[in-house]
Design a protein around this nucleic acid. Structure first.
Length: 186
DNA sequence: TATTGGATCGCC
DNA sequence: GCGATCCAATAG
C-alpha cells in the first residue's frame, strides 16, 4: 500500500484554495508486530484511527513542533497506516511558500513535518475519510516513467524496527526528504 | 498528577 | 551536531 501511493497526487482543499503534491516518499507502519508503530502497544486514544477503516487520515503531533500525515491502510480492527514523508509541490505553491517561509521548491514539502506545514494539515484533519473532493489521492497521468525507479530502505527517525525496509521513495525525485545518513547533496 | 521521550526541523 | 517545545503514554 505504501508502495502504491508513490506517484499519486495528494489533493487538499481548504478555504477555496487547492493544494496538490505528488507523493514521492512513504513509509509503512503496521500493528502489534511492528515495534516502530504507534499501534505496537495496542489501541490508545491517539492511535485509535489506525485500527479503523482504511482510507482515513491519521494525523499526530510530535517533537513539540510537527504534525505528520498518515493514511490508514487495513480493514477495521487491524492497525496499519502509511506515513506520507514527502511530496513534490504541484498546485497552490504560493501558499506553501508563504507558510514555509521559503521559495525553494525542494524545501516546501520534502519531509513529513514540512508537508503538513505547507498543506496546513493539523490533527484537526485526523480521522477524516480521504475519499472526497477536498481531501484525497488522485492518479497522476503524467510522469509515469518515474514509477519505474522506486527505491526502498529502512524507515527514518525510529529506534526500533529498523530491520524492516518499509520506506519507499522515487529514486529520481529531487523532492525526497534528506536521509540523515546520506546527507551528501545530490 | 508527574515524568519522560518521540515516525522532526532548522540553526549552531 | 543539538536544542526547541508539546503531547501522549506510562507509572505512581
Amino acid at each position: 500500500m505504501a508502495f502504491e501511493l508513490i506517484g499519486k497526487v495528494l489533493v487538499f482543499c481548504e478555504n477555496g484554495i487547492t493544494l496538490q503534491g505528488r507523493v514521492v516518499e512513504t513509509e509503512a507502519y503496521l500493528g502489534s508486530g511492528d515495534p516502530a508503530s504507534h499501534a505496537y502497544c495496542g489501541i490508545t486514544p491517539r492511535n485509535r484511527v489506525m485500527f479503523g477503516e482504511a482510507g482515513v487520515s491519521y494525523v499526530y503531533f510530535t517533537y513539540g513542533n510537527h504534525h505528520c500525515l498518515n493514511v490508514v491502510t487495513e480493514r477495521e480492527g487491524i492497525a496499519g497506516a502509511v506515513l506520507i514523508r514527502g511530496v513534490e509541490p504541484l498546485g497552490g505553491i504560493e501558499l506553501m511558500r508563504e507558510r514555509r517561509g521559503t521559495d525553494d521548491l525542494r524545501n516546501l514539502a520534502s519531509g513529513p513535518g514540512k508537508l503538513t506545514q505547507a498543506f496546513g494539515i493539523t490533527r484537526e484533519h485526523s480521522g477524516l475519510k480521504m475519499t472526497h473532493r477536498h481531501f484525497h489521492f488522485a492518479e497522476d497521468f503524467e510522469s509515469k516513467e518515474d514509477l519505474l525507479y522506486i527505491g526502498t530502505g529502512p524507515r527514518i527517525g525510529i529506534s526500533a524496527g529498523k530491520e524492516f525496509p518499509f520506506r519507499y521513495f522515487l529514486e529520481a525525485s529531487r523532492f525526497v526528504s534528506v536521509n540523515p545518513k546520506v546527507a551528501h547533496g545530490l
